[in-house]
Write a protein that binds this DNA or RNA. Sequence first.
DNA 1: TCCTTTCAGTTATACGAATGCAAAGCCTGG
DNA 2: CCAGGCTTTGCATTCGTATAACTGAAAGGA
Lengths: 351, 351
Amino acid sequence: MSRRRITLADVARHAGVSGTTASLVLSGRGRELRISESVEHRVREAADELQYRPNIVSVGLRTGTTRTIGFVSDTVATSRLAGDMIKGALEAARDRGVMLFIGETEGETDLEQGLLRAMHDRQVDGIILASMFTRTVKVPTGLKTGPAVLLNSVPDRSAPLPSIVPDEVEAGRTAARVLLDAGHRAGIHLIGAGPGIHDVPRDALAGVERLTGIGEILDQAEVTVAGGHICSDWLPNQGYDATCSLLERERPRALICLNDRLAFGAYQALDAFGLKVPDDVSVVSFDDHPIATWVRPKLTTIALPHYELGRKAVDVLFAEIDRRRDDVEPDKETYRIPMSVRIRDSVRSPQ
Amino acid sequence: MSRRRITLADVARHAGVSGTTASLVLSGRGRELRISESVEHRVREAADELQYRPNIVSVGLRTGTTRTIGFVSDTVATSRLAGDMIKGALEAARDRGVMLFIGETEGETDLEQGLLRAMHDRQVDGIILASMFTRTVKVPTGLKTGPAVLLNSVPDRSAPLPSIVPDEVEAGRTAARVLLDAGHRAGIHLIGAGPGIHDVPRDALAGVERLTGIGEILDQAEVTVAGGHICSDWLPNQGYDATCSLLERERPRALICLNDRLAFGAYQALDAFGLKVPDDVSVVSFDDHPIATWVRPKLTTIALPHYELGRKAVDVLFAEIDRRRDDVEPDKETYRIPMSVRIRDSVRSPQ
DNA sequence: TCCTTTCAGTTATACGAATGCAAAGCCTGG
DNA sequence: CCAGGCTTTGCATTCGTATAACTGAAAGGA
């Protein structure tokens, strides 16, 4: 096909110097190692002219660093959430000249192991283990060797690792404040979880934390939640069913839906009962799924910061890589990324 | 940190043979090169015991093949479409023991160039250039060097490349047949494009092809489209507006929406006018976006085969890699992946 | 004058696996 | 008992880059 790639040796020959000299110049250490200005210039010229690009595979073999990180998630396709997280990670990586391997485990341990091994075989500089919904995970052994970060999940006691999660408790507080600020004091119902703090779908750490935040603010205001309805999955039809069964019993003034898909179902149920959002019932929700702007009226929701989560994961990972290099003790902090509210048209004061 | 990786030399030493022998055995060429059974066994034992894994970076340097491919798309986050395509590609890659680099160009040529270069620097075995909506693309120079495949786009005359696209024309035919089979003969309106074959959003190849298929079948049945309404973006609010302006003028019996998000908007408009789907108006659409199963009644739609597109791209890419290796002339075929209909509850016979 | 520094690079080697070539061991037939 | 062929294994080199160690010449100091 096209002719052979240009190597460092070609550049050196073209500039009439040794490979070492060319290497020194191009890795920017020419100055400190006393390469003369003229030689430095010659080498740079030659590299430019030949369009030299270092072969990263070779550098990887020699130095052990490949400017490559792995992004392993349990599911990439389930929702666009993953997409935004990957996008954030991708951009942060690009800023550093680093490439991203991606892999998907589908929650299966052996696939996960295989993937982590495949990545280590390729000498990745670090790994991001991402989860598609916030939860506690057992850290796989394959992660304990090199630099790693948990994204959207926190480690159980098995191993300390830095982790990045959305600040769900604060999001819960925000949601409650939105309703209080609008003047709601009664008839507030939860859709998807509650009323107890542990009435959440299995492993749904986000649920627990959102409820915690909600409860905290409502308690402070001495407002009590009128009721809650747990759903096993946070999907539209469950939101619909839960809301219907609520509406058969009583007339709520406000709904806090645990995510936007539930809220979408709730909209449908309210519509079926001839109730208007926000005149009859206010709705506030979580995630800022695209559908939140598609429904009428548009949904006020507390946004998951997927993009920022992805970016932050890369930042923390590189900090971790640096501390390992410098032999500093590893990070094990949990970074909470703020979730900001998107005020739209689904909340109004009662009356 | 943990102790040094096990290398081939360790295995050889442990088995009491030379590196060559160990290499031969482990690369499966022991038989053909007549390594004795006992030695072969010893080497395998040693490799097992030490948990040897070949360092792919090294192999990459030596052989030039890294068991890695690049997946470059214009946007990964815009919709979940990308997610499914990546998922398909990922699984097909995993079946081959290959890893995937991903990158995003955001449609910018210089980012694209940088990415392609970064991938070549890492000696990828091939590249998939994916587009998030079906269109014609100018093949970037960086792709002409190595094996490459176009996904969800076709090359312009600048260079021949194999490409994978959904079979949109046939999808259009299917949509038309769905309505004809239900007995619709009049009052069929298009939302999002039409009535002319080139009344589509800029670059929306999918639009042209869907319209072609629709027109073909309706013509055969001597049915004429009652009207069409082009939308600049295929988003819910545009579907809403288009449908509202239609409903102000006349009463349609069936809508063909050019995608599910438009259909969602159409649902809202129909609802606002007090019209019921499917009793008053049938709706058929394209894509099979998750929302198609969330709306009530569920939407009959012709599904984009994202997952299959991703898989096929990897298959074709590897076929291409093989033919380059064997010096066979390159592939330049366009592979059309069938789009299958998801019959749900939004179509009923008129009357 | 002789020895030490500094300068401005170069030579040699390593990273881990693959592979062409050579050679050692074994067997068989004369 | 040995030549010659086959079988089995090892040595040395290669991929492209980084880097420790070294060198030859000039300059500086006693």
